[in-house]
Design a protein around this nucleic acid. Structure first.
Lengths: 226, 226
DNA sequence: AACAAAATTTGACGTTGGTCAATGCGCTCC
DNA sequence: GGAGCGCATTGACCAACGTCAAATTTTGTT
């Protein structure tokens, strides 16, 4: 597990320090790992399950910014800046998450510069992802954005079957899908209906069947006039 | 200058190394500092002027993601990941930009872990900013987003006069304003017209006069029904 | 199993904002 | 100075999307 995470850069003695400074917790669906406004008391590392990173605006609208998977490290922003958490982190299903105290993190960062560089690479990747989303929000229709989101979720939750059909089990509700693409949940419902009448994707609860993945790819390119 | 930048964490001998490994260039309005797809050959530090960070999508739509100011470091993502640049960087007016070769950057990062942590803090701040924009794109109307953008630009380009009026010289075109809020430039033109008829902000070329800054703040909160 | 709560779907309707097109403005480059 | 070019503004039109409301399904709880 540690091999696939940011902590793989640690040397043997440092791993011992890490092991001494961490504790592991189990969460069930919907439980909060940390919340906006709380002071950062360390970093979290997802061991199993999926954790949703959300931000709320002043009116209480929730936007799902990111899904975190085993190996991902969470909450280090607050530790680095000394500010409160800017996001909520919530288990989407049963999940195991390690907690590493601020003190331990700082000791490890002091001890091994590669850990900081590893965090930096990870953060740069998140920034790149966020900027890509900004570009999509600025240029794509909601329908195209939903198609794009489905393709991304396919990478992690999809299964390809022999006949070219693919299936997908959504990790999130329609409301969350909507917040991920910046639309209302009613709009997502309608787009799903149209995907079905257009034969592009068939939804049943959180199961999705996609006859031809290519059809979704086609949806993404904006309306090029015939 | 260096005092206000990421490089302020360097020790004296490291500054000497930096000085030996950098070169300074002058750009005039519209000139490119680096472009998407180019390999990262080092990092750039803005000494004077404003640099626009843009990303293009597949259809050539340009989205202005960020404005970089004196003290900001650019292009380190490509150096860290070893990938090509993901954005264009372009001088918005006359600007001086230093270039520090990859080799020098890596030597400094090896030598002084604090530099990496400084980059990390800076990147975390950018990520926070990008995520805030995502939330705004998901929840605000274009009118509210433009009001919000004007308030942000006020911080750097605004002047407050004695009678409570504020003025602002926009650093970017209407098209860029539009791409920053994820709208068409025609839409921005129309919102500007309405701001004027509503007495909220008066535009003349790139000059903006804002009688009461508070009126812009009011625009941001979504339509709360009376 | 029965109930309550939440999520989802669907309809009707109005607004926002995108598209297309025409015109005017300001700039640079001959 | 004039021609050409990109930017900006405005109008007309319409599709996409948000809002409100109601019906229906799903989910969780007692």
């Amino acid at each position: 597990m540690r091999k696939r995470s940011d902590w793989s850069v640690l040397a043997r003695d440092e791993v011992a320090l890490l092991a001494g400074g961490q504790s592991s917790y189990s969460y069930s669906a919907g439980e909060s790992v940390y919340s906006m406004g709380e002071a950062g008391d360390g970093v979290y590392c997802v061991c199993s399950g999926t954790v949703a990173i959300r931000r709320l605006d002043a009116e209480g609208n929730s936007v799902l910014l990111q899904l975190a998977y085993p190996g991902d490290t969470l909450g280090y922003e607050a530790v680095l800046t000394g500010e409160a958490h800017r996001c909520n982190a919530e288990a989407l299903g049963p999940a195991n998450v390690c907690h590493i105290k601020t003190q331990t993190v700082k000791a490890l960062l002091d001890n091994n510069p590669n850990l900081g560089l590893q965090f930096l690479r990870r953060t740069v990747a998140s920034l790149d992802d966020a900027q890509d989303k900004l570009v999509h929000h600025a240029t794509l229709s909601n329908r195209a954005k939903l198609a794009h989101l489905l393709l991304i979720l396919m990478d992690r939750y999809g299964r390809h079957t022999a006949d070219g059909t693919s299936t997908l089990h959504l990790p999130v509700s329609r409301r969350d899908l909507a917040s991920m693409i910046g639309a209302r949940h009613e709009t997502v419902s309608r787009i799903i209906s149209r995907f079905q009448t257009d034969g592009i994707a068939y939804f049943s609860g959180r199961s999705v069947r996609i006859p031809q993945v290519n059809a979704l790819v086609e949806e993404i390119r904006p309306q090029l006039v015939g």
